[in-house]
Design a protein around this nucleic acid. Structure first.
Length: 239
DNA sequence: AACAATTGCAACCGCAAAAAA
DNA sequence: ATTTTTTGCGGTTGCAATTGT
C-alpha cells in the first residue's frame, strides 16, 4: 500500500486515523442532539475535522450506546457460523441477528478465527473429490438438474422464514450449491430429502462445501444438530 | 531480555445503491 | 429524467498488544 501519509494529520482538510476523546465527545454530543444521519453536515455544524464517512463509521462501530462490549460468546459464535454458511460474507445482514454487534466486529471475528483454519484431511479428501467431479461432469444431467431445482425450492422454504432475506434467484442457486449443510439443518422441521443425517459421522464429506474451512467447529454444529437445536431457536433467544 | 511472529481491532478505501436536488 | 450527494457495505490495511522463540 502507499502508506497512510496523512495518518493523524490533515489530508484535504480532513483528519484521519484514531479518534481522540475530544472528537468522540463532539460526535456523541452532536448525535444526541440531532440524531443519526446527515453525517456530511457534522463537520460544518461542529467544526469536527472528520469526513461524514468517518463520523458514521466511528458512531456505528464504536460510539453507539447500544453496542455490546466484550467478547463474542460461544452462542453468538454459533450464530455467526451458521448465518455465514447461509449468507456468506453478508456481514451487515448477519449483524442484524446479533443485537449490539457490528458488521465490522463480526467480520473481524470471522477473519481472525475461521478464515485461515486449515481443512481436516477428511474434508480435504472430499474437497478434492468434489473438484474432480466438477471437472468430469461439467454439465448436469437432467435428473441432477431436477434435484437441484428441488434443492432450490427447499432453500426457498428456509429463506422465507429468515427475516428480510432477499436473495436473487442466482444467489439461491449459489447457496444451494455452496452450502448443502444449511439445507440439511433443521429449521422448524426437516428440509432437503428429509434424512437430516448431519449427526452421522460419514456426512462430513458430503457437506464440505460449507465446512471445509470450518472444521474446527464441526463438533459444535454436529452437537447442536443432534440436540435438535435450530438456528431459529438460537436467534430467537435474543428477542 | 530481546527480537520476531501472530493476533485483534479500529479505521481506511472503493464501489454501488439510495436519496436528494 | 438526470445528475449530484449521501449512505451503507465489504474488503483491506496499519498498528498496538500479545505470544512464541
Amino acid at each position: 500500500m502507499e502508506g497512510h501519509s496523512g495518518w493523524g494529520t490533515l489530508v484535504d482538510g480532513w483528519r484521519k486515523g484514531p479518534w481522540t476523546a475530544q472528537e468522540d465527545e463532539i460526535l456523541i454530543e452532536h448525535v444526541n442532539q440531532h440524531g443519526e444521519g446527515r453525517w456530511n453536515s457534522i463537520s460544518k455544524l461542529t467544526g469536527l475535522r472528520r469526513s461524514g464517512k468517518s463520523c458514521r463509521l466511528r458512531w456505528v462501530n464504536y460510539l453507539r450506546p447500544d453496542l455490546k462490549r466484550g467478547k463474542i460468546t460461544p452462542h453468538e459464535e454459533n450464530i455467526i457460523l451458521e448465518l455465514h454458511a447461509l449468507w456468506g460474507n453478508r456481514w451487515s445482514t448477519i449483524a442484524r441477528s446479533l443485537p449490539g454487534r457490528t458488521d465490522n466486529e463480526i467480520k473481524n471475528y470471522w477473519r481472525t478465527h475461521f478464515k485461515k483454519s486449515k481443512p481436516s484431511k477428511n474434508i480435504e479428501r472430499a474437497r478434492a473429490r468434489f473438484l474432480r467431479q466438477q471437472q468430469e461432469q461439467p454439465k448436469l444431467k437432467l435428473e441432477e438438474q431436477r434435484q437441484e431445482e428441488q434443492q432450490q425450492a427447499d432453500v426457498r422454504g428456509i429463506m422465507t422464514q429468515v427475516e428480510e432475506a432477499t436473495l436473487a434467484p442466482q444467489e439461491m442457486q449459489e447457496m444451494a450449491y455452496m452450502y448443502p449443510l444449511t439445507s440439511m439443518l433443521q429449521w422448524g422441521g426437516c428440509v432437503g430429502d428429509g434424512s437430516c443425517s448431519v449427526s452421522d459421522g460419514s456426512s462430513e464429506e458430503e457437506v464440505w462445501g460449507s465446512l471445509w474451512n470450518l472444521d474446527d467447529i464441526h463438533d459444535d454444529l454436529d452437537g447442536a444438530c443432534r440436540a435438535g437445536v435450530t438456528l431459529q431457536d438460537q436467534v430467537l433467544t435474543f428477542y
